[in-house]
């Protein structure tokens, strides 16, 4: 299976994305059997809230189609690095799409680019880098954690990227990136990126290139920027990217009556408790919302003007409500240019 080549029908070995609801999305490998905990080969079945999905039932299905399960349905989607990022098994903290997207543009990566990444981590960024360098480019990714290196390599191979990737086990702060004057761009996600910066410069082409360092803490950023400047890098920029997601819905708020004779309309059950509960439905993120109910909701939300005009006591409007809990910080991205002919010292 390849993330990078499109196909219509699902085959054995493919990685597919199973979409159950906005917060329930899974990546599955299409394998008819799996080993159970006793090492015995058994039928591969995936449990969902709508019942069991036999993986073999996916074979021959079209990407984008609806799969009916005993108690509902799910969608099967084509894998992309973005969907992989929200479904991958976490072996470390990972980068998310807003940061990943910025990294690729700022590092000016395109087909044919040669890119170094340290460390590989859970491979969230790696997948986007592999897509960006294309079949003519190369990603050299390394990690100091031996097990992660092997898992990542297996994953990249299963996802059809073996032509364009090397994964190595090394401590770049000590051993360098293993690339000399070849890279267009270097990405560092390390506890002490400043120690790796001189090695990063060595890996960059003589004609120059771009470097990015991702760090969660500001102290790391300060030290990184200082080292970058000392090494002669240019265009040193630190930034932070946060995505704010909205829930789009129709909201109904009561309009309280102004005329005194309307006062009688106030029934005793129109109290704050029911009001607060109603609001909970509006403002809170509908995390449990699933594909099935989403569809039925569409019917509910058609504005019922007749009702509104009859009672004249509510206002209905479209609103985009931001999640009450949103990402407050992922990390700081620091970018710099290695100018052409920069002296390399290590």
């Amino acid at each position: 299976m390849s993330f990078s080549r499109c196909k219509r029908l699902i085959e054995i070995g493919d990685t597919v994305i199973l979409y159950i609801s906005v917060t329930n999305i899974y990546a599955l490998e299409v394998k008819p059997t799996v080993l159970n905990r006793h090492g015995k080969e058994i039928e591969n079945v995936f449990q969902t809230r709508y019942g069991c999905l036999k993986i073999t039932d996916l074979i021959g299905k079209e990407f984008g189609s609806k799969i009916t399960l005993p108690k509902g349905w799910v969608h099967v989607l084509y894998p992309t690095p973005e969907l992989w990022t929200i479904t991958l098994p976490h072996r470390t903290q990972i980068l998310y799409t807003p940061d990943i997207a910025m990294v690729i543009t700022q590092l000016e990566i395109g087909p044919g680019s040669i890119v170094c990444e340290a460390g590989t981590g859970s491979g969230s960024l790696s997948h986007a880098l592999l897509r960006a360098v294309g079949p003519t480019g190369k990603l050299h990714t390394c990690d100091f954690h031996k097990e992660r290196v092997q898992v990542a390599l297996d994953e990249f191979t299963r996802h059809g990227f073996s032509d364009r990737v090397t994964v190595s086990h090394r401590d770049v702060c000590v051993d360098g990136l293993g690339i000399d004057g070849e890279a267009d761009a270097v990405f560092l996600d390390l506890p002490k990126p400043w120690e790796a910066l001189p090695h990063a410069v060595i890996s960059i082409k003589a004609e120059g290139g771009r470097i990015c360092s991702f760090s969660p803490c500001i102290e790391q950023v300060c030290r990184t920027c200082e080292t970058m400047a000392a090494l002669g890098m240019k265009e040193i920029t630190t930034l932070e990217c946060l995505a704010r997601e909205f829930h789009v819905k129709y909201i109904t708020v009561p309009i309280i009556p102004d005329s005194s004779d309307a006062a009688e309309e106030l029934k005793p059950d129109y109290n704050t408790e029911t009001q607060a509960k109603k609001m909970k439905l509006d403002i809170k993120t509908s995390d449990s919302e699933d594909t099935n109910s989403e569809d039925t909701k569409v019917k509910e939300i058609v504005p019922s003007t007749s009702k509104a005009s009859r009672k004249c006591s509510e206002s209905k409007f479209m609103s985009a409500i931001s999640n009450l809990k949103m990402p407050g910080h992922t990390g700081y991205l620091t970018f710099a240019t290695v100018p052409p002919g920069l002296k390399r010292t290590c």
């Binding site: 807003p98 950023v221 920029t237 630190t238 930034l239 932070e240 990217c241 946060l242 995505a243 704010r244 997601e245 909205f246 789009v248 985009a320 700081y332």
Partner: peptide, 9 residues
């Protein structure tokens, strides 16, 4: 539906 914040330091 989303919006981004971009903050430079």
């Amino acid at each position: 539906l989303s919006e981004n914040w971009l903050r430079h330091y």
